[in-house]
Design a protein around this nucleic acid. Structure first.
Length: 570
RNA sequence: GGGCCUGUAGCCUAGCCUGGAUAGGGCACCGGCCUUCUAAGCCGGGGACCGAGGGUUCAAAUCCCUCCAGGCCCA
């Protein structure tokens, strides 16, 4: 049990408040000089019918304090507690050296099973910066859930069929004689072809008709030429997605495709029609949710093709057949809120167990300074272009600092730093907030960024390397040597890690981890400048090295949850 | 017209769920710090009537109501 939990339990017992009530108000004073924990006595005062100050005084005199509390002080209505520095250091640092990369993490599988669906990129189209927010958020969420004890099933649902694919195939057919198909990155190449195709189609009625025809043939699977083209180009895209997942350090348990949800979708809708949940209208199958304020949606078109909603109903069936899970989280942009409300309402009307399980984790769009990205206007910022530019920028920065590095080493470091910057910027903000992408900020490596945190980690590693620090041999440590204010601040922060992981998981807010590692990095840098670690005083050095190693370990653990590399050198 | 979301220094943002001590960071700006563990860093400074107005409360950035502005979705 952490010091904080123990204090909460003691206070609850002493005040007769519930542990939840105590946990809610127990906080940290604005200035560490005032104490390490603060208990506001307003509620207790009301119960005792005395002033908060008197209640704080009385509680202070009467309560039995844990032995690790070194002193207390009543400041106005607050009863503040000072934690014994030596006991704090001993407790936190010993636990970290014992648990290492498992520090702060619960045992996996001790809680429910959660299926998390994220990324949702379409084949035949480019991956853009909006997708990057999705995949950064989604994969970090999965890691955080696992770290707090849930079992996680990572799935993706990709649009591999539909009008966008038809557009791409149309352009492919039109230009296949004049263009050379590349040997690698053919999916990316197709995405560019798609963009070119959609530019040209605008206002061309004949072309639009041709595309409708291709779409029809694709859905009916009865035209050998289209079927073959579809399968071939689809595979090119999936191959590129595999490369992309590797770059992101990501493994899915199952990749779902729209094309496989078609038939089950039709089946579910037929059942819903029978049950009277859905109805026919002009040959289409619709679901009328107007009385719930959710409008009417078309599930199967007049031509017999399932819509996104129709396919999602089928997808839910497949998922339930294949996996047992207690919750199902869909990481999808806020523009799809109505869509999910409609789908979830339909689950409910269908008495589907999915209704209780499903949750839409919504996040704000990624915009450009000039507004929405648009493939029609050609203003999409594609993943490939972004990464190339970032790697170039980061490599330049590395060469400036280390002119003698080999090109392999530069490349390897640049990749860690560029992806760190990218992922951090995509998940350091509150989900609902929409973000504006600008190049200047994307390439920034200072301040509130991924590289700042990586740098703190590299600095810690560097000290440990110089000292030839060996964690196994550090059993005899004089914890009283760690007595500066900044060292205590760091120890308090280190001790909070598991609590933050827990909160990030329960609230589906991985960005709390981002804030945590940022704060720890700031504190570590402050320490780095204020105190010398390598020293003639060997006892002092040993104690500080253990602290540095613990900071390094916890930074690494936090960064891992965010999918960000923790480099030893930068 | 309806539903959901957002509004905190020049800019980006935390805190809002669960009210409590001087509203935390970062960028940019100004002034310092590299013969000591990596200056992608650190220290100091200026800069915020927390969108506006009401209400509830001993106490409101935080809860409630109204309005304003922007975004997304629907019509």
């Amino acid at each position: 049990m952490s010091f904080k939990d123990e204090l909460i339990a003691v206070l609850a017992k002493e005040t007769k408040l519930s542990t939840d009530d105590v946990a809610q108000v127990l906080s940290v004073p604005p200035d560490p000089k005032l104490g390490d924990f603060a208990f506001p006595c307003f509620k207790v005062a009301a119960m005792l019918k005395m002033s908060p100050k008197d209640a704080a005084d009385r509680l202070n005199q009467e309560m039995k304090k844990p032995e690790w509390i070194s002193s207390t002080a009543v400041v106005g209505p607050y009863l503040n507690f000072y934690v014994d520095k030596i006991k704090l250091a001993e407790s936190v640092l010993n636990e970290i050296s014992l648990k290492k990369e498992k520090y702060g993490l619960a045992e996996e599988g001790t809680k429910e099973t959660i299926m998390v669906e994220f990324f949702h990129a379409n084949t035949h189209k480019g991956v853009h910066i909006g997708h990057l927010r999705n995949i950064s958020l989604g994969s970090a969420l999965c890691n955080v859930l696992e770290a707090s004890g849930y079992k996680v099933i990572r799935v993706n649902y990709q649009g591999d069929i539909g009008p966008h694919v038809a557009k791409c195939i149309w352009a492919y057919k039109k230009y296949q004689d004049e263009l050379e198909v590349p040997k690698i990155n053919r999916g990316i190449w197709l995405g560019k072809l798609y963009a070119r195709g959609s530019q040209e189609i605008k206002g061309d009625a004949a072309a639009e008709e041709e595309i409708r025809e291709i779409t029809r043939k694709m859905y009916e699977h009865n035209d050998p030429e289209i079927e073959e083209l579809w399968k071939k180009t689809r595979q090119w895209c999936l191959d590129d997605f595999d490369i992309f997942y590797k770059k992101f350090g990501l493994k899915y348990d199952r990749l779902y495709y729209e094309s496989e949800a078609e038939i089950p979708g039709k089946k579910v809708m037929a059942e819903l029609l029978e049950k009277g949940v859905a109805e026919k209208s002009d040959g289409a199958i619709i679901v009328n949710l107007e009385k719930y304020g959710l409008n009417i949606y078309v599930a199967i078109t007049g031509k017999g093709y399932p819509t996104y909603q129709g396919k999602d109903m089928g997808l839910a069936e497949i998922k339930q057949k294949e996996y047992k899970f207690d919750r199902s989280v869909h990481v999808v942009g806020s523009e799809q809120e109505l869509f999910f409300k409609q789908v979830f309402k339909t689950y409910e009307l269908n008495n589907s167990p999915m209704f209780e399980k499903a949750y839409h984790l919504s996040y704000g769009l990624v915009n450009l300074p000039e507004g929405k990205m648009s493939s029609r206007l050609g203003t999409m910022i594609l993943y490939e272009d972004l990464v190339v530019k970032m790697l170039e920028h980061v490599s330049k920065e590395i060469v400036e600092r280390h002119p003698d590095l080999s090109s392999e080493e530069i490349e390897s470091r640049a990749e860690k730093i560029a992806f760190g910057a990218l992922k951090y910027s995509m998940q350091s903000k509150e989900n609902q907030r929409r973000m504006t992408f600008d190049w200047k900020h994307a390439l920034d490596l200072h301040g509130d960024t991924g590289p700042y945190i990586q740098y703190a980690h590299a600095r810690a590693s560097s000290i440990l390397r110089k000292a030839k620090f060996d964690n196994k041999k550090s059993s005899d440590v004089d914890f009283s040597k760690l007595d500066s204010a900044v060292e205590k601040k760091i120890l308090m922060q280190l001790g909070k890690f598991s609590e933050v992981v827990e909160e990030a998981a329960e609230k589906y807010k991985p960005y709390l981890i981002a804030h945590f590692v940022l704060n720890l990095s700031q504190q570590f840098n402050e320490f780095y400048h204020a105190e010398q670690v390598l020293s003639e005083d060997k006892a002092l050095q040993t104690a500080r090295l253990l602290l540095v190693d613990s900071v390094r370990q916890v930074l690494a653990n936090g960064l891992k949850l965010l999918g960000i590399a923790a480099p030893d050198e930068m």
